[in-house]
Nucleic acid binder design. Sequence first.
DNA 1: TGGGGTACTTACTCTTTGGTACGTAGGAGG
DNA 2: CCTCCTACGTACCAAAGAGTAAGTACCCCA
Lengths: 126, 126
Amino acid sequence: MTKAPRTGPYVCGIDAALDVVSGKWKGLILWELDEHGVRRFAELRRGLPGVSEKMLTQHLREMEADGLVRRQVYAEVPPRVEYSLTEHGRALNEALAPLGDWGVERIRRERSDLVEHRDAAALPRP
Amino acid sequence: MTKAPRTGPYVCGIDAALDVVSGKWKGLILWELDEHGVRRFAELRRGLPGVSEKMLTQHLREMEADGLVRRQVYAEVPPRVEYSLTEHGRALNEALAPLGDWGVERIRRERSDLVEHRDAAALPRP
DNA sequence: TGGGGTACTTACTCTTTGGTACGTAGGAGG
DNA sequence: CCTCCTACGTACCAAAGAGTAAGTACCCCA
């Protein structure tokens, strides 16, 4: 089963935006497509280590339905399908950039906290 | 039970940021606290129509653990607890602003699509 | 004496999400 | 002939997330 249609209207813009990026791999898919422009299914799969084929197709379909991703099918054998970002998808990625910066800061903070604690634990008590 | 500790490190900043805002009400809590500066538990509850007390406390505790929210307890009877954003929480809110704008655009687009379809359905076929 | 308000906690249940495993069509390569 | 490749679809299952309902301790007000 695919995602249940959302009940009720969005409360605010954040609400609406988080709705389309929530999903374990959607942020990474966006990033991967923005990075490479066009990607085939198997390329995306290799780019997202640990993703299952089911989730990848499901997320791609949802993002297509949300107008973020364009899906180009070539009637060939073996089949070939190419994914790329739409204009809205690219705009979303730009809007995500400051959030990404904040996240990088958070990771940095977290790591320096860990280091401090490790050092504190390693130091002999005076 | 509270949220399970995340397994494995973050892949990128987006990943780290989405981890702290994912949760049905976290975006709204952030918005509410940014809007009013300081809020008590019951005020937040009234500001988020439909939230259960359980989820509100759970989300507030997680956000406190993530360093987004400050929790000030006054040893009074009846009890009084005040919530406000930390510096990191305010920075996160700023980083969310472009995403919110994108979301507003999306809502606008969606609504105009609906209107177009309604009009198309209402029009007599030529 | 009874009801309401404060800020929770706990137990139980239901829904959503994601993972695993398998099936598919047709051609290419050994 | 047998297997691999593509890009999926489907069935089943486990874990996480969220909702419901009830209980807690103390005070104020009528």
